[in-house]
Computed example of a mutant assay.
Amino acid sequence: MSDDHTHVQEFFTARAADWDSRFPDDGPAYAAAIAELGLREGDRVLDAGCGTGRALPPLRAAVGAPGIVVGADLTWAMLEAAVRAGRDQEGLLLLADVGALPLVSGSFDAVFAAGLIAHLPHPSENLSELRRVVRPGGTLALFHPIGRAALAARQGRQITPDDLRSEPNLRSLLSRSGWRMTSYVDEDARFLALAVRED
């Protein structure tokens, strides 16, 4: 396992037990972002970097009983927290690296990724891997429950011009990875970029 992966695992393992209690009010923001994915009953959706599985209940509600919901995360402690919260009832949990998913190409209609992009060791390659598992015309949502400025303030840092989540940087990154950005919102209350898989 690479040093990048070890760092991400250590970061989230240390925070898994109280993750949900630190951010108790994010539920409505997750639900609103998922609504914008345009999922239909019976769709297949991947929650990439699912953490404690907070997106799984609204994802399940969006695709209904016939749909398929898979949550993949690199950190075992986060998946354990998802199980303790009962969110494994909403979908299949998978211990996996989003840079090398053990999933069939083109097998999903959409990917939801909350807070993932800042933790990708190789963003272009990793987003290409997410593209691989989505059918042509499938969608990607890159989400965070607060915007870039609010997150930077929370972390005591400044936003720099090379921030991956700035609109021009992210649009270019997505394009290089086989995605076409269709919308971009960066407000205090949320960050949400939507993209479609190019054929």
Rank of each mutant, 00 (worst) to 15 (best):
R40L: 14
V98Q: 11
D163K: 02
A14W: 06
M1P: 02
S107R: 06
L93Y: 07
A16L: 11
V196A: 10
D18W: 00
R15E: 15
L170I: 09
V111S: 12
L130Y: 13
A72L: 12
A72K: 04
L37M: 09
L101V: 09
A35P: 03
P57V: 11
L39W: 00
S105E: 15
R176A: 14
D97Q: 10
V111I: 12
V133E: 03
R132W: 14
A31K: 06
A33L: 01
E90F: 15
Q158D: 15
L56S: 09
A32H: 04
A82P: 07
A35Q: 14
A16R: 12
V185E: 15
M181T: 05
S105Q: 07
E41G: 04
T160M: 06
D109N: 11
M1I: 05
D25I: 03
V104C: 00
L74K: 03
D43Q: 04
D188R: 10
A61S: 11
R171H: 03
F23E: 11
V133G: 02
G38V: 08
A85T: 09
Q9E: 15
R176M: 05
V98I: 15
L173P: 01
Q155E: 13
S107G: 14
I146T: 08
T160H: 05
A31Q: 08
A35L: 00
M78T: 09
A114G: 10
I117W: 00
M181V: 07
E41D: 06
A33H: 00
D26R: 10
L101I: 12
A77Q: 15
R131V: 13
A113F: 08
T160V: 08
R171A: 14
Q9F: 06
H7C: 01
G137Q: 04
T182N: 02
E90Y: 15
Y184I: 08
G178H: 04
H122V: 06
P24R: 13
I34S: 02
G156H: 09
P121R: 07
D20K: 07
G64K: 09
S128T: 15
S172C: 01
D162R: 09
A82N: 14
A62T: 05
P168N: 03
I159Q: 13
L46N: 07
R157S: 03
H5C: 01
I146G: 04
M78V: 14
D47Q: 12
R15Y: 07
P161M: 01
V69D: 12
M181E: 13
D186W: 12
L95I: 12
A77L: 13
P28N: 00
H5Q: 15
V133P: 11
L174D: 03
E80Q: 15
S177K: 01
A82Q: 10
P121L: 11
C50E: 06
S2M: 07
D3F: 13
I146S: 12
S183K: 00
G38S: 05
F191E: 03
S105C: 07
P102T: 10
R84W: 07
V70K: 05
R22W: 03
L194A: 08
A152E: 04
V8P: 02
D186A: 11
D4I: 04
S172N: 04
L39S: 02
H7M: 12
L37E: 10
G137D: 14
G49R: 08
D18V: 01
R180M: 00
D188C: 01
L142C: 04
L140E: 13
A110F: 05
G67R: 09
D73K: 09
